[in-house]
Write a protein that binds this DNA or RNA. Sequence first.
DNA 1: TTGTAAGCGTTATCAT
DNA 2: ATGATAACGCTTACAA
Lengths: 338, 338
Amino acid sequence: MSSLAEVSRLAGVSVSTASRVLTGSSHPISEKTRQRVIAVAQQLGYSPSALARALVSRSSQLIGVLVSDIVNPYFSVIARGVDDIASRAGYATMLSNVDRRTSTEIARVQTMRDYRAAGVIFAGSGYVDDPQTPDLLKAVRQAQEQGMHAVSLTDRDIGCPVITPDNRAAAYDITDHLISLGHRRIAFIDGPAGMVASQQRRDGFLACMSDADLAGGAECHPGGFDYEAGHAVAMRLIARRPLPDAILAANDEAAVGALNALRQAHIDVPGEVSVAGIDDLRVAQFVGLTTVSLPLYELGAMAARYIINTPPDTDADPPPTTILSHRLIPRETTARRA
Amino acid sequence: MSSLAEVSRLAGVSVSTASRVLTGSSHPISEKTRQRVIAVAQQLGYSPSALARALVSRSSQLIGVLVSDIVNPYFSVIARGVDDIASRAGYATMLSNVDRRTSTEIARVQTMRDYRAAGVIFAGSGYVDDPQTPDLLKAVRQAQEQGMHAVSLTDRDIGCPVITPDNRAAAYDITDHLISLGHRRIAFIDGPAGMVASQQRRDGFLACMSDADLAGGAECHPGGFDYEAGHAVAMRLIARRPLPDAILAANDEAAVGALNALRQAHIDVPGEVSVAGIDDLRVAQFVGLTTVSLPLYELGAMAARYIINTPPDTDADPPPTTILSHRLIPRETTARRA
DNA sequence: TTGTAAGCGTTATCAT
DNA sequence: ATGATAACGCTTACAA
């Protein structure tokens, strides 16, 4: 690895001059030395140490993304959005799986801090009444004091800007769609207990049902965000009969689980029961699932842009909340009630 | 951000002493000073600068993973394997999407080098006769000379150890399974043209067919690794009739595409046609797809372990190749021929 | 057992 | 227009 010192020596100039040339500083430099330095650097294959740079500038070109689990497509799409913007701007992406553990999030924020990351992005939802939130908030504040940015992609009170879809409205809208199709008795498969995102989606569902005077037809079942949860709830529904008019799952994966349970039981979807989800992941297209498209990629991209473009210590004081819009995507798993 | 200097000052010792205490050096230290330093550090919330550390040690605790696209579950599972091992060992994961572009891989290796990463993992397959491979090889060599490790998760001649599944054997085995079920005319949906992994899988298919004296019943169709490709090929097969006995896709996603095309055309799977894939991603479980399970998570985990545990410049000279085993997973999309 | 000082590779402040 | 030199925060000989 050739260093600046090496380049400057071969070019017969001081390190400062070499630095000025190579960083494209506005400092005046004679054309001949500029050429010479560039030539030597080029020929040596010189590439500046991001570490040394970050050490003096007190900030690296790293952006951290904290996801629950990168295998979950919800998060990998977000991560893709982040990395696309980051790499385009010369930044690199640091990824960390936190498995929904707040304590792990706290630890990772510290890691990002140790590398003087330009910012951290919290992609996962928090828990209702999480006793560790204050600690996370403190960790975030310390990171910010050090000049780091933080962004949350879900509604979370951790002292940083929030860029998020409106989970409640998304659930409300898809519920409304189901109702407009003539469905009256709708079963909702809840997300993981205690998660803020689960709660918001359920709230949206219930609000819509009661706005339509259908509160009596609404039933919530403890579920989860995974295939198995959706499958299990649907199995129970099937065993219990009569079936509801429609089943809405808190996310696409659970909806697909429910859908498969129904199909395995030879129940016609959407003939006998309509099924819908929320997220619009790729799998939803595969199975023709009616759902709500959330701007996941854009969420990650916007967060990255924010981090890259906001100068340190410039963050607005009450951290702003940005709501990105969603879109209803009707497909083949829903139909007008017979 | 408190620094070592600060800690040492408050503890009334020199920075070296503080450093020795905090790094757990074997250098003898009196118990009282040790306690004092630890207390101060603790109370100050001191956390060492990973940057400064990396700068002097000439190596950071960062592991880079180069994937084609993190949204593709094939890669996100690998990335998860890497990050699990990495974070457990105190390392952080740097992720980069390269969209199968060798030039981007080269650029990213340089980025990892700039951060003095402990190692880079190439998760994606290369191309047959890729003119840029020599450049990549050179970039890898330079990285290695600098003390970085490199690992490829596919069969690739870029001067680094390879840890990979046996694509050819995997395809061979699943083909053999299809044949053992009585299928004679089998259509193979190829992966992306020019990719080594595509070629290996097709080779395995063809080899098995010809070993079974069924070369005449083998037909390969240009396809891809995505849903759309599988869907399109199946549509063409359907339009053309008669249908083959079975369809094997180069990977699960294409297989699911084919499966859906068949189902949409009301063709009974596995009644009329059997369908199988390769990879065993989560979606394969969802749809009950017969496939071959590849140790993707383990691939990432092993690569990370290798990077973490192999001391610099200790790499074996002809870089070793490690083949991890696969497993046939029969599910509901295949059945004995009618 | 503790401290001093050099050095890792940059950038930035002053001089010249 | 160019060059010393002091940080940045840490580890590690080398001294004491």
